[in-house]
Amino acid sequence: MAPLLQVENLTIGFPRAEPVRDLSFEVSAGETLAIVGESGSGKSLTALALMQLLPRTARVTSGRIVFDDRDLLGLDAREMRQLRGREIAMIFQEPMTSLNPVMSIGWQIGEVLKVHEKLSGRAARERAIELLRLVRIPAAEKRVDDYPHQLSGGMRQRVMIAMAVACRPKLLIADEPTTALDVTIQAQVLDLLDTLRRELQMAVVLITHDLGVVAQWADKVVVMYAGRKVEQALPGDLFNDPLHPYTRGLLSASPRLKSDFHYLSGRLTEIPGSIVSAAGEAGCPFRPRCRQARASCGHQVPPLIAQTPERLVACPFTSSLKAVPDAASLSL
């Protein structure tokens, strides 16, 4: 079966920068793909490109986004509008800024259904209540008339999810959906997203900076750095045997709950410098921060090497890296 979404060699350009370069990945129905990276990695712009909601100054300068056998870049604004919210939906990090503060949540959920499914006001309201139940909001028939400010952060994100799945989309893009939430609420919301993914057979693109979330909720992972995919793997492989120096660096930089490592016993392994150093870098974007960088790393951008069909890494020196003892001091 062909994947539901295929992104091929996507490059996004601003007048003076290219925040996403030559990015390819695919997602199938019922599958969760996590895109992980830090601020400035291009992960959120990628999400916006999938929705064709890029800021005015940004353009897709090359590549294809094939969704359900249609190239989204070839659609006009009207065709895209019909797709958006119906077949592709998106939820954002901060639900309060995505919800209209002067409309009830029932009205806002209902609006999606009125537009896309031509429901009447009454029918839309009924469906809104059903959807609030689906996302486990207690006393849904009362809550439907609440305004966003009357809800907690977790509840607001549930409302966003209710809106997103109202038309049973084939693809859900979740951009840092739980970053603004507490851990106990995060667990509830991710549980909910995962249940809906299974029930609706949705493909999910989960954008996050949280490696723990990736490990526990993704079917496969794309690691981005400075606009490029530097590694792709199944989550188990990624955490047991990270290949790219950046992935290795991230894993050893993060303190772990299940580890005796303490400040009295040693320093955290830092990644020196910052992502800003990737700007204008001719070769590997990670070279200025890489402890294993060699002269040849500055010559050209390292191509992605497929170790297996599921395992890609954009670093030619991964096999020799394994010999470096300090590179993966992390005990998982």
Binding site: T184, A187, Q188, L190, Q216, R256
Partner: peptide
């Protein structure tokens, strides 16, 4: 205990959300 269980950690399998409801 619930706080600890809710932290997603690569080194252990996923657990059901340990707490319901909001603060």
């Amino acid at each position: 205990r619930a706080l600890m269980a809710a932290v997603p950690d690569p080194s252990r399998p996923r657990q059901a959300a340990p707490l319901g409801g909001d603060l």
